[in-house]
Amino acid sequence: MNGPYYINDYCRICNGTVKVNDKVLYRSHTPDPAAFYTEVYKETAINYPKFYKMDNLCKLGFLASELLLRDKQLNSRYAGDDIGLVLYNASSSLETDKNHQLSIQDRSSYFPSPSVFVYTLANIVIGEICIRNKFYGEGTFFVDEAFDAERMYRYVNLLLYESHVQCCIAGWIEQHGPNYDGILYLIEKTNADPGGIAIFEPQNLTQLYLQRN
């Protein structure tokens, strides 16, 4: 079945606002991403203590995935290895890279830490989401200059059309210093009942990404 596929849900986190399917779940004026993520975690009553160990990139991706998938019962509808994850961002794990670099910059106070170093890989966020949800499927982290709906559409479409992947969580998860910008889409082969958000097409990905929170 070569489409059309459907964006059945999305979660947008930017500008101090968390939105799922056009509905604002939380709004804050806290500029610091780490503090903001903790607020979101508490306000939306997520209970997953591992959250506190994550770096900010993983926190952003984790929160977006939790709120996107809440009550969706994905695991009862799909085998864990039929669920794919395709994520993009611009700065990879650069924020945590800089923290690791600080820990080794001064040879007289050298304290590299495994709990920091492990987060110097952007794809750890995929691992965190898979662990939380028991997803065993395809996972890919791409790095790109900016959100590129066309590229995302083409690769996810190919996965759904050409491989065993039945359902894909795709999106842009960018976190670097004070800047954060996250969106995750739940893309499925059939339209949700009642209807999903939009047909899976580049212009719809873009439109959801660009709307003001």
Binding site: E128, F135, G139, T140, H164
Partner: peptide
Amino acid sequence: FSSNDANHISGPSRTGE
């Protein structure tokens, strides 16, 4: 194909799942 262990971020799965 790629896959995920859904087990641990820094250690491989004990079952090779």
